[in-house]
């Protein structure tokens, strides 16, 4: 479905966009299988309408919200962001959505809210990857941000891309986009938002804490233990002419976010 939106050039890169077909067919969404093509093949099995989100924890407006009600007061924006996957590939995607801060403010977090926790739908009937006997993921998929990260102007809740509602494999009907962090922080198909005082546990950190940290800021200086993070393949990449480029700290968004981490050792808090 086509969406109405306002382009936001100040929040958009002019780099060449990754074509729609690649954005919609090359996905990590383990709820539908671990192959890159699995989500595009099987995400149809998920129902995204109606959709509601539970809001809980340290806020004045907890409750169960229908997706439309949560989005209604807001005007959609288009932001063209770089997306850097921890696996060393990257894309440029025109997202449609709403700044995360705008929505969180309406929920009125209390002074005790230090972190925001997000959760993906958990329904093995609709998500075949969750039925796998050999998966080491303890479903549901969960992610989190520090409050100041969540309130940063770049943090975005996407409901569409390329001018249309999100394809299911891209995390329909609503997903997070945090462009200065590795892709796995940008949790898909969100059903729960919780404000909390303690730092939430996040899925990949629980599986392999030595490989995936809570912060997961894009950082060429800190290698993944199994591969280098110095470079990335911007997709689509050719076989004979791989589209290599140098990875930039904070995925090139340092101007907007570096201050959030100014007193932190990013080798320790990776």
């Amino acid at each position: 479905k086509s969406l109405n939106f306002v382009p936001m050039p100040d929040y958009s890169t002019a780099e060449e966009k990754t074509p729609f077909k690649d954005v919609a067919q090359y996905n990590n969404f383990y709820e539908f299988g671990t192959g890159k093509g699995d989500p595009a093949r099987y995400a149809e099995e998920m129902t995204v309408d109606p959709w509601s989100l539970g809001v809980e924890g340290e806020c004045e407006q907890p409750g169960e919200y229908a997706l439309e009600d949560l989005l209604k007061p807001h005007e959609y924006q288009e932001r063209v962001y770089r997306l850097r996957c921890v696996e060393a590939w990257s894309m440029v995607i025109p997202w449609i959505g709403v700044p995360l801060a705008d929505i969180l403010k309406r929920l009125q977090p209390t002074s005790r809210a230090k972190y925001v926790y997000f959760e993906t739908l958990h329904d093995p009937d609709q998500m075949r990857g969750q039925r796998s006997l050999f998966s080491t993921i303890d479903w549901p998929y969960q992610e989190g941000l520090r409050m100041d990260e969540a309130m940063n102007e770049l943090s975005f809740l996407a409901v569409g891309l390329y001018g249309k509602t999100l394809p299911k494999q891209n995390g329909a009907p609503i997903r997070l986009v945090v462009p200065w962090k590795y892709g796995f922080k940008s949790i898909k198909s969100i059903v729960k938002i919780r404000f909390q005082e303690e730092r939430p546990e996040t899925t990949w950190e629980m599986i392999a804490p030595q490989e995936y940290g809570f912060y997961a800021n894009v950082n060429p200086e800190v290698d993944h233990p199994r591969w280098s993070q110095k470079r990335e393949r911007r997709l689509p990449s050719g076989l004979l002419s791989p589209n290599w480029m140098e990875t930039v700290k904070f995925n090139g968004y340092g101007e907007q976010v570096a201050h959030l981490y100014k007193d932190m050792d990013l080798r320790k808090f990776f």
Binding site: T18, Y26, G37, P236, S237, L239
Partner: peptide
């Protein structure tokens, strides 16, 4: 490879 049907990251796929 000839049909260019290995997706956007063919090097990884191959």
């Amino acid at each position: 490879i000839a049909a260019q049907s290995l997706g956007p990251d063919p090097g990884q796929e191959v």
